[in-house]
Design a protein around this nucleic acid. Structure first.
Lengths: 231, 231
DNA sequence: CGCAGTCTTGAGTGAGTTCAATCCCTGTGG
DNA sequence: CCACAGGGATTGAACTCACTCAAGACTGCG
């Protein structure tokens, strides 16, 4: 139901790009531009490998009654595999104007394998976040992840990130409600841990403190962990 | 710290086993027996592919302070890939005496690919469970999963399952506390949805009701869903 | 300038946690 | 054969974190 302005362009190939630390050679790529809210590859017939050049993708899973869980957020440099058969209600959509490189997994087996492995590792860590962390820990971890994936120029030596996610996206990613996300972010702001004026540009004013909160070390809210009682 | 009685046996090969619906041919397999509590392949140097012949494995992830999240439970017929470098605190342990077939992923690329794909799909659904479901829905979904993976002979036409998980395992799998798991199971028992006497053998006395609860249709507890407000 | 979408903030509530006591079962040793 | 110990499971009572409901503020847009 949204403005569909997907354009395509043939690129010179092969192309070499960096994922993680290893340069990965790719072949037969072309480029797609996706508008915010638009879905990725819903009508594909063959498995596809996508790599984000610029922008932000959200992988999500829907329940019959409309509940949504975003299982991963994908930024520039990272890749994602999309199965043809719309694998089990899993979809991918763009959270901003996003440029993706479309690749053939058969022609890029190394990237395909690495992509699957990274997805699994990230999702494992995210499952732990969802099942075993409280709101502050969830939001702190989310912010640190996004700061790595969507870095802007440092401001007075502090990391700055572009926040493509709305409060609703953050909530569906972190397993919270929008109100709790809003309250937690504003609490962090009041505590001087982060700062933002325009809501889509966030500065980590005390990144080391944020890391402490993310790992459960919370001196102020003394020893309030959650369910998983430390052994 | 536990009794280590891991034995190995060379098997005739190739061997054909069924995973899902497709028969998958494997080569150069041998068999490992793992005792309950024992870890799987902690000291491996090369990537390994394991397939459970009999028993039950738990894939889990630990936080620095001891909190634990079990990300998957693996029963007979299912496979799992273990990376050499102890991938990011992810470990695998046996919940009962378990017989696994050890395979070389390079020699079984089809199984390796399918294994990764299945792991990702299951973990995606589990993330949704962890982030967006209430206790009753979590436990109902968990039971239905286990009933498929660990079936026993039907009792009066009803599915029966072997429950290898303790309350503590269930809690760490479903993102709850042992008390909530216990209360929910006993509530199901009181409602006549499930039945058990010996705690490791559970009968689904009303499987269709359990499926309703699992999918959020809860007429009795009328319309008490959770955070993810139905769109 | 008004509308719609997003975000914030407050007040009240409740699902699930924490804490704690008890029970149950099995294995062990006198 | 029975007493005791220990791990797991159950149950109750109290609490609390995050949710629900609701109102208001902010922003961009037609």
């Amino acid at each position: 139901m949204l403005h569909v302005n997907t354009r395509q362009a043939i690129l010179p190939h092969p192309v070499t790009v960096h994922i993680g630390l290893k340069p990965v050679e790719t072949v037969k790529s072309f480029v797609n531009f996706i508008a915010p809210g638009e879905d990725l590859g819903v009508s594909e017939t063959s498995p596809r490998l996508y790599r984000v050049v610029d922008g932000c993708l959200a992988v999500y899973h829907l329940l019959a009654d409309g509940r949504r869980q975003i299982t991963d957020i994908i930024g520039p440099g990272r890749a994602i595999a999309q199965q043809p058969a719309h694998d089990g209600n899993r979809s991918i959509k763009a959270l901003t104007y996003t440029e993706v490189e479309v690749l053939d997994p058969a022609a890029n087996p190394a990237l395909a394998a690495e992509t699957a492995l990274e997805a699994l590792m990230r999702l494992t860590r995210h499952a732990t976040l969802l099942g075993r962390m409280n709101a502050a820990e969830k939001v702190a971890n989310g912010l640190l992840d996004l700061a790595e994936q969507f870095p802007r120029k440092l401001r007075q030596g502090r990391p700055v990130l572009t926040l493509y996610l709305t409060r609703s996206d953050l909530a569906d990613w972190l397993g919270l409600t929008i109100e709790t996300v809003s309250r937690t972010l504003n609490q962090f702001k009041r505590d001087g841990v982060i700062d933002y004026a325009h809501a889509e540009i966030v500065t980590l004013t005390r990144p080391e403190r944020l890391k402490e909160i993310a790992s459960g070390n919370n001196p102020t809210t003394s020893a309030r962990s959650s369910k998983g009682k430390a052994a």
